[in-house]
Computed example of a mutant assay.
Amino acid sequence: MSPSKPRRSPKPQERQRDPERTRRLILDAAATEFAAYGYAGARIAAIAARAGVNQQLISYYFDGKEGLYQAMSERWRERQRELMTPGTPLPEQIRRYALEALNNPDGVRLLAWSGLEYAGPETDPDRAPRSERIQGDIDGIRALQDAGRLPAEVDPACLTIMLMAAAMATTTLPHVIEGVCGTDPRSPEFLHYYADQIAVLTRLLQREPDEHGAGPDGAGDTAVPGPDRPAGHG
C-alpha cells in the first residue's frame, strides 16, 4: 500500500453539505465499484463519479482507497450484527448469510473478489477485521461441539469456511447452478429455496430436531421449515 496523502480540507461550499449523507453516498458508490472490479480494479475517480462528489472528498473523509475499503468492512460488521442477533440458531445464521446474495449482493461479490485477488496478507486490507468477525462464528461452532451437538472430528474453523462457501455459491458458482438445477441462480425464488436447503443441511449436521419437533432422542424443539420445492430445481 502506498503512503496516504495529507488530507485536504474541504472547500467552504463542501463544508455546507451533510457530512453523513456525503459519506453514505461515497460508501454506496464504493460498494458498487468494489463489487464490480475488486479492490485492485476499483478506481477512486469512478467511485467519486458514481457518488456525485469531488474526488478529494474521498481522501478527506476516508484517507484514500484503503481507508474507504476498511470503512466498508465496518459497515459489514454492522450488517452482521443485524443478521446475527444473540441466540440465533446456526441453521438460521447460515440461511441469512445465503440470503445476502439477494439482500446485499455487493457485499457478497466483494468478499468473492477479495479471495480471487488474494496474493498474501499484504494484499488483503480487510484481513484483521474479517478474521475477527469469523472467529466469532468459529467460537459459536466450537461451543456446539463442546455441548455434544457436533462430532469431535469436525474442525470448527474448517466447518465455518465450508458453510461460508456454501452460502456464497449462488454468487461464486451461478453457472454451475444454472447448468445443474436448470434455473436462474439469482432469482428470488431460487435464492430463498437454496437458503432454506442450506439451513436444512446445517440442522441435520448439527443434530437439530426434525420438522416434528423431535431430535435424535425423541425430544426436541422446532426445526427450521423448508419451502415447497420450486419447479426446475433438479
Results as ranks from 00 to 15, higher is better:
143 A>S: 05
24 R>F: 04
45 A>Q: 15
39 Y>Q: 11
203 R>Y: 03
219 A>M: 12
131 S>Y: 09
187 S>I: 10
77 R>K: 11
12 P>I: 08
197 Q>M: 14
146 D>M: 09
198 I>M: 13
37 Y>F: 12
17 R>I: 00
197 Q>R: 15
5 K>Q: 10
163 L>H: 05
57 L>H: 05
17 R>F: 07
12 P>T: 01
117 E>G: 09
150 L>W: 01
94 I>D: 04
140 G>V: 03
225 P>D: 14
60 Y>Q: 07
6 P>E: 11
178 E>R: 15
141 I>W: 05
18 D>Q: 07
39 Y>V: 13
41 G>T: 14
179 G>R: 13
81 R>A: 13
96 R>Y: 02
182 G>Q: 00
168 M>R: 11
220 G>F: 03
78 E>Q: 08
45 A>P: 08
183 T>F: 02
227 P>L: 02
221 D>G: 08
107 G>V: 06
197 Q>C: 12
224 V>F: 00
111 L>R: 09
133 R>E: 12
43 R>T: 11
121 P>G: 13
80 Q>K: 11
212 H>T: 15
217 D>E: 06
44 I>N: 06
189 E>V: 05
232 G>D: 07
37 Y>M: 07
194 Y>N: 04
18 D>L: 02
200 V>G: 07
186 R>F: 14
14 E>H: 12
233 H>I: 15
115 G>P: 08
202 T>G: 06
185 P>F: 00
129 P>T: 03
185 P>M: 04
81 R>S: 08
27 L>A: 02
66 E>A: 06
101 A>W: 01
157 A>F: 03
112 A>M: 07
180 V>F: 12
157 A>M: 00
51 A>C: 13
49 A>Y: 04
78 E>C: 04
55 Q>Y: 14
97 Y>S: 00
5 K>S: 13
194 Y>I: 01
181 C>H: 12
142 R>V: 02
182 G>Y: 00
63 D>E: 13
149 R>V: 08
3 P>H: 10
93 Q>N: 07
154 V>Q: 09
128 A>V: 12
